[in-house]
């Protein structure tokens, strides 16, 4: 069987969600091709060609593919599927946007956010915010799958696949790109960061969130996250949100500050290697998943932590 993986990138750099999805694809088949769809993305395709295990890289470019329009992605991928038995897409906001369209057009189920491959037809995926794992067997001839990248190890670089340019589809008639505003940040991206520092509702205000969480994150070279409660209250932007309704992260170190640990938040971070919780409520559910718990008010604990890090030469 042959498998197509759709690369995650921002037209300039390849994101490691791609290498992680290649690892999942290689569990299905050794015939794995990669599709880079974008605009001005030749450099991304060249980087993708170095991923070990990739047979060839397909490159398609147009304005709409660069803007990530779901209709264009579907129109590009569906005709290619005559040559593939499965298509795997990283479950990013972009992947989640277009992948179900490919499934619907092919009249097959989408197998969403898999966390493991049992065999070529059987997959494991989280349901109910990760409170249950469902093993599903697909009877469809073609598999359309999104992959939760955080649970797969990134494939290595060391290959030298050929890059083949393919034609881009026509512009969609009824969807028009207006603009895109990406937040420029010096910090690592939340979903791929090695350390994440998250703040919760206890912060009390957006100013306090910036004042407390961000310096600690910067000291550790960490990404900044937030609980849904903090986002709902307007203390942090939505793309900081960790949880069932936000991003799923699995860093080496996750530090939860003033976060009680609602089910939906735990769903987004419980696969982190080491979890630290700082909360003044000793009974907060976050302590049940934390490797290291510090029962203290963040107002004193965070400055103490900054000082202790400095004393340790960090």
């Amino acid at each position: 069987m042959a498998v197509l993986v759709i690369a995650d990138h921002d037209n300039a750099t390849l994101k490691d969600n791609t290498e992680k999805t290649v690892t999942a694809a290689l569990k299905l088949s050794s015939d794995v091709d990669l599709l880079v769809a974008g605009k001005g993305a030749k450099g991304v395709a060249d980087a993708a060609a170095k991923i070990t295990g990739v047979r060839k890289v397909l490159l398609a470019e147009s304005d709409e593919l660069g803007e990530g329009l779901a209709e264009s992605m579907e129109a590009l991928v569906v005709p290619l599927m005559s040559g593939y038995d499965a298509v795997l897409t990283p479950a990013t906001s972009q992947g989640k946007n277009f992948s179900p369209r490919i499934a619907a057009r092919l009249d097959v189920a989408q197998i969403s956010e898999i966390v493991d491959v049992v065999d070529a037809n059987t997959f494991i995926r989280p349901i109910y915010a990760g409170n249950a794992l469902e093993t599903v067997q697909s009877s469809d001839a073609k598999k359309v799958i999104t992959v939760r990248p955080t649970v797969f190890k990134a494939a290595e670089h060391g290959g030298s696949a050929k890059v083949e340019t393919i034609a881009a589809p026509a512009k969609p008639a009824k969807t028009h790109f207006v603009d895109q505003k990406l937040v420029k940040s010096e910090r690592p991206e939340l979903s791929g960061a090695k350390i994440v520092v998250s703040g919760g509702r206890a912060m009390g205000s957006a100013e306090e969130f910036h004042r407390v969480i961000e310096p600690l994150a910067d000291k550790l070279g960490a990404a900044v996250g937030a609980s849904r409660a903090a986002v709902d209250a307007g203390y942090a932007p939505n793309d900081y949100q960790v949880g069932q309704t936000g991003k799923v992260v699995a860093p080496e170190l996750y530090i939860a500050i003033g976060i009680s640990g609602a089910i939906q938040h735990l769903a987004g971070m419980k696969d982190s290697k080491v979890i630290v919780a700082i909360n003044k409520d000793a009974d907060a559910p976050i302590f049940q998943v934390a490797d290291y718990g510090l029962v203290a008010d963040y107002k004193t604990a965070v400055p103490d932590l900054m000082a202790a890090l400095a004393a340790a030469g960090i």
């Binding site: 097959v108 189920a109 197998i111 059987t122 989280p126 349901i127 990760g130 409170n131 249950a132 794992l133 469902e134 093993t135 599903v136 067997q137 697909s138 009877s139 469809d140 170190l253 419980k270 080491v274 979890i275 630290v276 302590f287 049940q288 998943v289 934390a290 490797d291 290291y292 718990g293 510090l294 029962v295 203290a296 604990a301 103490d304 932590l305 000082a307 202790a308 890090l309 004393a311 340790a312 960090i314």
Partner: peptide, 30 residues
Amino acid sequence: RLKVVKVTEPPKRAGGIKVENAADLVAKLK
């Protein structure tokens, strides 16, 4: 189109320990 083979509980995270203070926390993390 999908047959549910089984639904299982995710592996439980073993609870950890409480640390005394920030310095203790940094030492343990290191």
